[in-house]
Nucleic acid binder design. Structure first.
Lengths: 148, 148
DNA sequence: CCGAAAATCATACCAACGGGTGACTGCGCA
DNA sequence: TGCGCAGTCACCCGTTGGTATGATTTTCGG
């Protein structure tokens, strides 16, 4: 800000000096004041525009818009959470299918294993999650960020 | 924009005319060109500043900063969804407790009714949701926006 | 005040779920 | 090569969940 004003004054002074030099050196006719005037006007107008633009800066208005981000779409399964609880990939797979509302038999048919296998996976899963029912397992897994 | 330029030119012309009139009318000494120069400089600088501010001031740059807001906290249970499926308040209550991982007995103790009552509520709920298991009911209710 | 919807409870039955135990097979790592 | 882990499967048994049917009471709008 102060630099601008100083620069402005300095330029004005230099211009005046230049004009005087021209006047004395080349003895330009007195009535050519219009030429000087126009010159000065153009120069200072340009300077003024530059100043105006520089001083006022860009009026940047920041609008903070709260956008509700669908948690499901931004969900990324990170293995860190899974391994923190000692849950294997297969167990997580069964957990997801359970959360989708499938029965043990349906899960078994879906991943091509026997129902007993699904049961043992589920049992170990409940143990690791500290759940006694599948609904409880789903609930805690959800709040742990294990599943969307 | 165009209006500004026109106004600018007009002002310049008027100023020149005024200066000439002053020059001829009062016969001001030739070497007082500095005074004229300073005058013109000041005027046009002011004009330029005004122009700069006016011209650049218009395009207000709006920066939209999207703030991610947890979707879960913005959840509001609207009765429209519930009634569209013909689900009663009590049934929704049982649904929420089911989704929290409670057993029928726990729900019964929680809302001070018998386990049989919870069972009948649950049965009707499954019927309305087209679910055969509680996990499935929770899953569909969630995707329907019935529960968070 | 009356009737429909909602809420409550019971009984019986069968399917699904969950716990416990034991066993077998690959696979990677020491 | 042996050990541990993940995955697979089986059996039994008790608990829980879900369906069907029927009944009573409460609530609420016309």
């Amino acid at each position: 800000m102060k630099r601008h004003i100083l620069l402005y004054g300095l330029l004005a002074g230099v211009l005046i000096v230049v004009l005087r030099l021209i006047e004395y050196r080349y003895l330009i006719a007195t009535r050519s004041v219009e030429i000087y005037g126009g010159l000065i006007a153009a120069l200072f107008a340009a300077l003024g525009i530059w100043l105006g633009v520089t001083l006022t800066g860009r009026p940047e208005r920041v609008v903070i818009r709260e956008v509700s981000v669908p948690a499901a779409s931004t969900f990324v399964a990170d293995p860190a959470r899974r391994e923190a609880l000692g849950i294997t990939k297969r167990e997580l797979e069964i957990l997801e299918l359970m959360a989708a509302g499938m029965s043990n038999k349906e899960i078994a048919d879906h991943i091509f294993v026997s129902e007993n296998t699904v049961k043992t996976h589920a049992s170990r899963l409940f143990d690791k999650l500290g759940a006694r029912r599948r609904t409880q397992a789903i609930s805690t897994a959800k709040s742990s960020g294990l599943i969307p």
